[in-house]
């Protein structure tokens, strides 16, 4: 993206996000590793470094390079994004739908009732009613944390299988078992449910303005 000799941004080809970062398509990456590479590249191709350049094409190239970098970073910067990218680059992506994780299936209704009661109390400014729900909410928080941990472990297993396939793929795009793709899509659906749940629980634990 940036010429090593002259420091000028170069036109970029569509190589996929892993190649932009110069890394193999493994899914297990520390956010900090990607982040450092992102910052290093951004410091060299940020368009603001070339706004004053006489040649407009240099600015265009920087803009293109930074766009490619940002798009790649967006695809890889979090676990969910990497999983989605792995699915779509394998031609197996399907839009996930909200799915209640197994561990919470028995209590989904109670969860809904408690959260609705807390949120109604907040809207009505009824602090007493809000406080009355806090014990339930606290136990909900424990359950949610547990579900989050299970989800994390499940993702670890998905990542391990993928990364093993990468290790044995000799530079080719990895091939995993059929079940992996369906589990990955299901996991994304559960993630959506959990994210909403965690945010609602976290918000519900705080009385507005306190």
């Amino acid at each position: 993206m940036v010429c090593g000799r002259c420091g000028m941004p170069q036109p970029v080809e569509d190589v996929g996000p892993f190649a932009v970062f110069g890394i193999p398509p493994r899914l297990t990456w520390e956010a900090a590793e990607l982040h450092a590479t992102y910052q290093d590249l951004a410091r060299r191709c940020h368009p603001d470094l070339f706004q004053a350049h006489r040649d407009e094409r240099v600015l265009q190239a920087a803009r293109g390079a930074m766009r490619t970098l940002n798009d790649a970073h967006r695809a890889l910067k979090n676990r969910v994004g990497r999983l989605r990218y792995a699915l779509s680059a394998s031609g197996r992506f399907e839009e996930p739908t909200h799915t209640v994780p197994e561990g919470l299936q028995g209590s989904a209704q109670i969860i809904g009732r408690v959260l609705a009661a807390v949120e109604t109390a907040v809207v009505q400014g009824n602090r007493e009613a809000w406080e009355a729900q806090q014990d339930h909410l606290a136990s909900l928080e424990v359950q949610t944390d547990k579900a989050e941990q299970e989800s994390k472990a499940a993702l670890g297993r998905l990542f391990n299988e993928w990364d093993d396939a990468v290790a044995s793929s000799r530079g080719e795009w990895p091939r995993v078992s059929e079940g992996w793709y369906t589990q990955a899509i299901r996991w994304l659906g559960e993630r959506q449910y959990l994210e909403t749940l965690t945010r609602r629980v976290r918000t519900g634990r705080q009385w507005p303005g306190s």
Partner: peptide, 15 residues
């Protein structure tokens, strides 16, 4: 490390 972009002029351009 890549070369730093060279300065275009000594006069500030952007207002």
């Amino acid at each position: 490390m890549a070369a730093q972009p060279t300065r275009q002029s000594t006069e500030p351009d952007f207002v």
